[in-house]
Simulated assay, not measured.
Amino acid sequence: MTRGPTLPAHHPPQLPRPLDAFNAACATEARALLLRCLHSPRWSHRIAAHRPYPDLDALLAAADEAAYDLSPADISEALSHECLPRLPEDTYSAAHMALDAAHAAYEARFGHVFVIYLGDTAPSETADRVLEAIRSRSANDPDEERAIAADELRRLARGRLGTYLRGAGSCATSPNAPTSGR
């Protein structure tokens, strides 16, 4: 039995991915996006300058490396643009009051907002996790806490950047979205 010619395999059109758009964006746009993920001009310039990235893992590795290289002044600047994590809408007012009191004590001790990465925390556990962590970390020595806060900033930036570039929304929708100022 003779068969006719085989048609070439059908390949769906290659649609641009968020990473492709990031790689192709002008430097100003790329840095603006990066600043929404971590407010550090040095960090954003470094990551934007090394585009294009072959894949998201390479970009996230570069973001981590750049975050590890932040100076104390860079970390201070990034911390000054952070805010407390948002609690779920149905959180009891007592939890809000406890968190406000714990944060006030933390900020008085360390001079900056409390930061924590909550990417793997269920919304129903957010208040408990934040309150436990803020109370636990308040006992840290200032240098130790500064190092922990820097690592949490790195994790926040990585999470926000990954969320944005996976096409799941913008960095501003993160539960720990940075503010434009305090």
Rank of each mutant, 00 (worst) to 15 (best):
P142W: 15
E132R: 03
A157C: 07
P13E: 00
L60K: 07
I134S: 00
A105F: 08
V113I: 11
I75V: 15
S174M: 05
D151F: 12
L15D: 11
I75P: 09
A104I: 04
D20W: 12
A63V: 06
P8I: 14
S93L: 12
V130Y: 05
D64L: 10
G111C: 01
L56D: 06
I75G: 02
E107L: 14
P16M: 13
R51H: 13
S170V: 07
R42I: 06
G162I: 06
L79M: 15
A66R: 07
D64Q: 13
A105Q: 08
A147H: 12
E144P: 03
D128K: 09
A101Y: 09
A58W: 07
N176W: 07
E152Y: 09
G119M: 07
T126C: 06
Y164D: 00
A21G: 12
S174A: 12
W43Q: 01
R155D: 03
I148P: 01
A133G: 12
D143Q: 14
T6I: 12
N176G: 09
R160Y: 00
P16V: 10
A127Y: 00
A105H: 11
T126E: 00
S76I: 06
E152K: 05
I116D: 02
A61N: 12
T28Y: 14
M97S: 15
G4P: 15
R155W: 05
Y92V: 08
A104N: 09
F114A: 04
A127V: 10
D74M: 07
N23D: 13
L84V: 10
A149G: 11
H39Y: 14
G111F: 08
L131Y: 05
A157H: 01
S136A: 08
A66L: 07
A63H: 01
R154F: 03
L118W: 10
A102K: 15
R160S: 02
L165P: 04
G111Y: 06
E145K: 08
D20F: 04
A172I: 08
A122C: 01
L84T: 06
S136K: 10
T179A: 12
A63F: 02
R146I: 14
P8N: 14
A127D: 00
L34N: 02
A30N: 07
S180Y: 10
T121R: 02
N176L: 01
A98I: 04
R31T: 14
P41R: 00
L56F: 05
